[in-house]
Structure formats: C-alpha cells, structure tokens
Simulated assay, not measured.
Amino acid sequence: MFIVSLTYQVPLEKVDVFIPEHVAYLNEQYAKGHFVLSGRKEPRTGGVIISTISDRNKLNDVLAEDPFHREGLARYEVIEIVPTKASEKLEFLV
C-alpha cells in the first residue's frame, strides 16, 4: 500500500485547468480498485492519494497517467506502508 503526496509546482490557475481531467483519472483508478482515498491538502498546496497497488513499478505507471504528472503540475512523494492495524471500517486494508 502506498501514500502518494502531491505538491503543486505551478500556480493554482494552471492546476485548475486540468482538474476535470484529473477527476476523470481518479474515477478510473477508483473503478479499477487502485485507489481507496484521495483529497486535496489544506491549505491547497496539493493532494494525497492512498493506493492499494502493491507493486511500486505498477504504481509509477498508474501515476504517470495522471494529467497533473503528464503536464508537470505536481511533484509526487511516494511512501510505502505495510498496514498492521486498522479500525473496523478499514480492516479490509490490513
């Protein structure tokens, strides 16, 4: 499992142009079961994605499809975690 932290590298006006395409990308990844949570940072400096993809190379390929990545709008920090404990609602992640 991975936590992906995106940090915008351009002004929000440029990011906003690609929000609809980014949301479509997220919807596709949710439908494929690759992502289980995502949202923007507050303040709005980027976003966070939690992915259940288990292979880092596959995750890299999936992230490369993100229009934010393709357009150079965000920097991506990827943190791998091995879940060992979760609330009842999130036990499926362990």
Rank of each mutant, 00 (worst) to 15 (best):
I49K: 03
P11M: 08
E21V: 02
I3H: 05
L37F: 14
D55C: 07
L93N: 02
V36R: 01
L93H: 02
Y8N: 12
E42N: 12
F35S: 06
L6W: 04
A31V: 04
Y76P: 00
Y25A: 12
T84A: 08
H22F: 13
Y30A: 11
R70N: 00
E80F: 13
L26D: 04
T84W: 07
L59E: 03
Y25K: 10
S87A: 10
D55L: 05
H69S: 15
R70H: 03
I3T: 08
Q29C: 05
I19R: 13
V17E: 15
Y76V: 12
P67Q: 11
N60M: 09
A74R: 02
T84F: 13
I81L: 12
E88I: 04
V23Y: 12
E65S: 12
P20G: 09
V94C: 13
P67F: 05
L6T: 00
E77Q: 14
V82K: 10
Q9A: 11
L26F: 02
Q29K: 10
E42Q: 07
L12N: 14
Y30T: 06
K14A: 15
V17D: 11
Y76I: 12
L37P: 05
L6D: 05
L63N: 01
A31P: 01
R70Q: 14
V17W: 01
N60V: 01
G72R: 01
T84V: 10
Y76T: 01
L26W: 06
F2G: 03
E91G: 00
R70L: 11
L12F: 14
E21S: 15
V48M: 15
N60Q: 10
L63S: 05
V17H: 08
H69V: 12
E80C: 05
